[in-house]
Each structure stands twice: as structure tokens, then as C-alpha cells.
């Protein structure tokens, strides 16, 4: 299956998801979260609060001690139906950009060599990296490496895209540029996405809802009132500033949260 033959976006249902690394260390504590089909949800919270662990559990990379993750329709990672963008670009340094993007298709053994190549070239074009196909990662800038990493995550045409602080290591300009790119890719491909981030503005600009975690617990999931389609210019609106304050208060702790919190009960 190539990107233009993509499956319907899956919804994600985390049911009582619990991950414990040691008896006294609960990384994710009975999390209940639903991400609707085609929706982007940001997971935000202090460092070490379990965001990445929850994301890895959704991807099937992290064994759970309790609970389950249901994907509807079922999305099978080993068939390329889940894409993952890591915090670092994690490109193989000995392979060209094109070879890196080809890798998921080769690992899942999808299509002929020619079809795989076409899909990888298409994915590179979609992130505006067609000219860098033969370059190796160390020849690319940080932003280009991250774009290649996004192309690699999308090359299989996944119905779910998981992003683990993908822009954390980039400067503000690149962060905005890649945010715009992500929105444009989402508008074209309508995948369901969960994005871990530390950046409140980024979470507001890029997501439909924001899930706030603390100490492994999902404290609240709030609807994002900012209108679609999104653009960085909205970051200068009073509405954006007001919602930024709400999220910021919730992040500071339960005592600061006074408005807008809505528990996710789905």
C-alpha cells in the first residue's frame, strides 16, 4: 500500500494503560485517553511525567503492566500503519536520505523495488527534500534531518502518526517552519496524530486537544478553541494568548487551574 492508497485514519483508545518500571516507579498510571480518527492530540507535561512512555505504549514499543491500547480500525505497526517521529531524527548515518526514507518500506517488505523508490521519492518531495535524496545525514542541516525523519514516518502512508518532541532540538524559526509543514501534511493525509511536546504554543497551534500529564497520571484533556485552518499568525491573537494562559495554569498544577479543564471521559 502506497501513500495515495492510504487506509482510513484509526482512532486510538487507551484503556487503563499502566506502565511500571519498578515496584515503586509508576511511569504511566491507569491512563484513559481517546484520540478520534483524524484528530491531533498533544501530550504535554513536565519532564519525566510519562508522556514518552505513553506514546511508546501506543506504538506497541513499550510493554504495559496493565490495560490495553485499541486502534480502530486496527492499525498494525509492522505493516507500516503507524509512523513514529523520534525526538532526534535518528537517521542511519551510513545511508543516504533516500535510503533512510526507503527503510520502513524495505523492513515491512511492501511493494516492488520500483514502487518503494517512487513512494520514498514522493515522501521526500512532500517534505521538500527531493534535492537532498543522495545526501547523507551529516550533510543535512538539523531542520532537513527532521524533515527526512518525518518523510520516513509518512512513507508507508500510516493511519496514525506518533511524534515524540520532534522539534525540541530546533530553533524557533525551524520549529515554526516544521509546524507549518506538519499541518500541511495532516491536511493532505488526515492521519490521527499524538504529539509529545514541552512547548505550549506548539501544542496549541498544532492540535485539536491538549492532554496534560503529571507524575504518570493524565490530569486533564482540554479542547483547543483556536479556529482551523491554523497558521502561525494566530499565535498573535488574544484568543491564543488567553488559551495559552489556561494551559500554562493547568501545567503549573491543580491549584492554578481555574478555567477550561474538562476531564476526558471517553
Amino acid at each position: 500500500m502506497m501513500p495515495n492508497d492510504r487506509p482510513a485514519a484509526s482512532s486510538i483508545h487507551c484503556r487503563d494503560v499502566t506502565v511500571q518500571f519498578a515496584p515503586s516507579s509508576v511511569a504511566v498510571d491507569r491512563v484513559e485517553l481517546t484520540v478520534q480518527s483524524g484528530e491531533i492530540v498533544s501530550l504535554i507535561g513536565p519532564s519525566g511525567c510519562g508522556k514518552t512512555t505513553l506514546l511508546r505504549a501506543i506504538a506497541g514499543l513499550q510493554p504495559m503492566n496493565q490495560g490495553r491500547v485499541e486502534l480502530d480500525p486496527v492499525a498494525i505497526a509492522s505493516e507500516g500503519q503507524i509512523g513514529f517521529v523520534f525526538q532526534q531524527p535518528a537517521l542511519l548515518p551510513w545511508a543516504s536520505t533516500l535510503q533512510n526514507v526507503l527503510l520502513p518500506l524495505e523492513l515491512i517488505g511492501r511493494g516492488t523495488s520500483r514502487l518503494r523508490r517512487e513512494a520514498a521519492e514522493h515522501a521526500l518531495e512532500s517534505v521538500k527534500l527531493a534535492d537532498a535524496r543522495d545526501k547523507r545525514p551529516h550533510e543535512l542541516s538539523g531542520g532537513m534531518q527532521m524533515r527526512a525523519s518525518i518523510a520516513r514516518a509518512l512513507v508507508t502512508g500510516p493511519s496514525i502518526l506518533l511524534l515524540d518532541e520532534p522539534f525540541a532540538a530546533l530553533d524557533d524559526m525551524l520549529r515554526n517552519e516544521l509546524g507549518r509543514l506538519l499541518l500541511s501534511l495532516w491536511q493532505q493525509q488526515q492521519f490521527t496524530a499524538v504529539m509529545v511536546t514541552h512547548n505550549i504554543s506548539e501544542s496549541i497551534l498544532l492540535s485539536h486537544r491538549i492532554a496534560i500529564m503529571r507524575d504518570g497520571v493524565l490530569e486533564s484533556v482540554i479542547d483547543n478553541p483556536i479556529a482551523w485552518p491554523r497558521s502561525p499568525s494566530q499565535m498573535r491573537t488574544p484568543e491564543f494568548a488567553q488559551f495559552f494562559g489556561v494551559v500554562s495554569d493547568l501545567l503549573r498544577g491543580p491549584s492554578s487551574a481555574t478555567v477550561g479543564a474538562q476531564e476526558d471521559t471517553s
Partner: peptide
């Protein structure tokens, strides 16, 4: 992250060895 990438796409031990560990 490399290991996760290969696991995500269902790469077994042999594929991980040949395509990831040996080149690395």
C-alpha cells in the same frame, strides 16, 4: 531510537543484525 524504529516495523533479530547492528 534506531532500535525502536526497527521494532516498530517488525524487524526481527536477523534484520536488526544485518541492517542496523553490523553497519553501526
Amino acid at each position: 531510537q534506531w532500535s525502536d524504529l526497527f521494532s516498530l516495523y517488525g524487524a526481527g533479530r536477523a534484520k536488526k543484525l544485518a541492517r542496523l547492528q553490523i553497519p553501526a
